[in-house]
């Protein structure tokens, strides 16, 4: 049922069931008729889908189709854009995230995000990793945490086990690894990756891919990408968005080999109407 993958397979039967929530099989995120408008311009129109725990879900579609808006809707990042309005429901572990009394900062600690542009903070690698935990009042050993997450993304040895390396001295692929490490340092349950490999070469892309799989099944990953091969290799479910609408959503293998919708098929074969 899951797509064939080259790097470590996504541990099909989870060795340890996810700890959180009484219903391990219930979706972790559930979108109900979720719409986003920027002023008068609709960016996302009535998207409903369920995201299961411990899986990689890929969001594909042409540029400007709303992939980024969908991802940003999942951790309430859109509301930082003036004029953005969101409607519909978003359940996380059964709890509505779009309520007035819900703290968006808390939402973003549970549902982290990495962007296409690896926007590093000034300072060292450590400064980058420590920012999130410090902001959420982490009281433990920051150095141990930094070592742990940098090991998880494969940077620890590469940096010569040195946390004081200036972040600006890293190569493009390493920067994105650092962005993922710093997102992991907040210990999110979901990680949103917005075209994380667009600026990277194939080797760096392969690394990001394998480190994603290393985080499963404790982490749930939603990745928006223009790289169809990456989506096919790395995800178990794929959503195809076009002009802000969810056209098709299902198991990656089915969607790629036998799409139900003609629009999906024409996109996958490169014949965009």
């Amino acid at each position: 049922m899951s797509a064939p993958v080259t790097p470590p397979p996504p541990a099909a039967p989870p060795a340890t069931p996810p700890r959180d929530g009484p219903h391990p099989r219930a979706p972790l995120l559930s979108l109900g008729d979720l719409s986003v408008r920027f002023g008068d311009r609709p960016a996302l129109s009535g998207v409903s889908l369920d995201i299961p725990r411990g899986r990689v879900v890929a969001v594909i579609g042409p540029s400007g189709c709303g992939k980024t808006t969908l991802l940003r809707a999942l951790n309430r990042m859109n509301e930082l854009i003036p004029g953005a309005r969101t409607s519909g429901s978003l359940l996380f572990d059964g709890q509505e995230l779009y309520r007035r009394e819900t703290d968006p900062a808390e939402v973003r600690r549970r549902i982290g995000m990495v962007f296409q542009e690896a926007a590093l903070f000034p300072g060292s690698v450590f400064d980058n990793v420590a920012f999130g935990p410090r902001a959420s009042g982490f009281g433990g050993d920051l150095h141990a945490l930094a070592e742990e997450v940098l090991t998880a993304v494969g940077l620890w040895a590469e940096l010569g086990e040195d946390l004081d390396v200036p972040a600006v001295s890293l190569a493009a692929g390493q920067r994105q690894q650092l962005c993922i490490a710093r997102a992991l340092a907040v210990r999110p349950q979901v990680l949103l990756l917005d075209e994380p490999t667009t600026a990277l070469d194939p080797t760096a892309t392969a690394r990001i891919e394998s480190l994603m799989h290393a985080q499963l099944p404790h982490l749930t990953i939603v990745i928006a990408t223009n790289d169809l091969r990456l989506a096919a290799r790395a995800s178990s479910l794929t959503a195809y968005l076009d002009r802000g609408e969810l056209v098709e959503y299902g198991p990656t293998e089915t969607l790629f080999t036998n799409p139900a919708h003609p629009r999906t098929e024409s996109y996958l074969t490169g014949r965009i109407p």
């Binding site: 973003r108 982290g112 926007a119 920012f131």
Partner: peptide, 27 residues
């Protein structure tokens, strides 16, 4: 101060004041 830096800080669960104090003002 680049918008990407602000967005990244918010995405890590920082409040507006923390983003200002720890990223915007130092930069």
């Amino acid at each position: 101060v680049p918008t990407g830096v602000r967005a990244a800080a918010y995405a890590l669960g920082a409040t507006r004041w923390e983003v200002i104090r720890r990223q915007v003002l130092p930069a």
